[in-house]
């Protein structure tokens, strides 16, 4: 494992921990998109179908369990926790799931490495992960006051994607036959979606003002 990959996984882990920390300790999910969290739960559930059949490493299995467990528990908190659910911005978080899920499923049925259930689900999870942040970005744009933890959560997620791209560049030059077009293009699209957010995040940081996205 190279340093970019490890740093990418650690920022991904940090993003999830920041979000869980916010929800668990402040008992608030204000500004957090349930739609995005449900899409991530679906992403991990469809990508990690091999978790109990193919052993890659202890690290790999533990991280998969963490991402599955955290995404489903965040969804549980927002939907079921008697205090947390009250802070959910239901009227603002209006993005439709099927608007993202259906095109990704169709794309996975057409573009995949092999036409097997697992490979189609794997491609689907990559396409869906690429766009799963959209409901969250739309919600941030609508929310006038973005609290620090929510801003950091999205920043860490974007950093994780950018580090994965560096990881692929590194692996391409150091490992023979490391070519994965589906992963790379989906990953690149995903990272580009954060470009706008990053711009405003750094501007607010540079000027030391509260993060606000233009409507």
């Amino acid at each position: 494992m190279n340093i970019f990959r490890l740093a990418g996984d650690m920022t991904h882990l940090a993003s999830v921990l920041v979000l869980l920390l916010k929800i668990h300790t402040i008992k608030s999910c204000a500004g957090v998109s349930l739609k995005t969290q449900e899409l991530y739960a679906l992403v991990f559930a469809t990508r990690y179908l091999d978790i109990f059949t193919d052993f890659i490493s202890l690290y790999n299995t533990v991280m998969k369990l963490i991402f599955l467990g955290s995404s489903f528990s965040i969804v549980w908190y927002i939907r079921r926790h008697k205090i947390v659910r009250r802070s959910y911005d239901k009227d603002q978080d209006t993005f439709r799931h099927y608007f993202l899920v259906l095109p990704c499923l169709l794309l996975a049925l057409v573009i995949h490495e092999k036409f097997t259930f697992r490979e189609v689900m794997w491609a689907f999870s990559l396409y869906l992960e690429a766009v799963a942040i959209l409901p969250q970005l739309v919600l941030l744009q609508r929310t006038r006051n973005i609290d620090n933890l929510t801003g950091q959560y999205v920043f860490l997620l974007g950093a994780y994607r950018a580090l994965y791209i560096l990881n692929w560049i590194y692996r391409y030059f150091t490992e023979p036959h490391f070519v994965h077009w589906i992963t790379w293009i989906a990953g690149l699209v995903q990272t580009l979606l954060y470009a706008d957010f990053f711009y405003y995040y750094f501007e607010s940081w540079k000027n030391n003002v509260k993060l606000q996205l233009p409507a």
């Binding site: 990959r5 996984d9 991904h12 091999d50 193919d54 890659i56 490493s57 790999n60 991280m63 998969k64 991402f67 794997w122 994965y164 990881n167 692996r171 490992e175 036959h177 490391f178 070519v179 994965h180 992963t183």
Partner: peptide, 10 residues
């Protein structure tokens, strides 16, 4: 095997 190096990522 390219299948392994693809799936060792998260």
């Amino acid at each position: 095997d390219s299948n392994i190096d693809k799936k060792d990522e998260l």
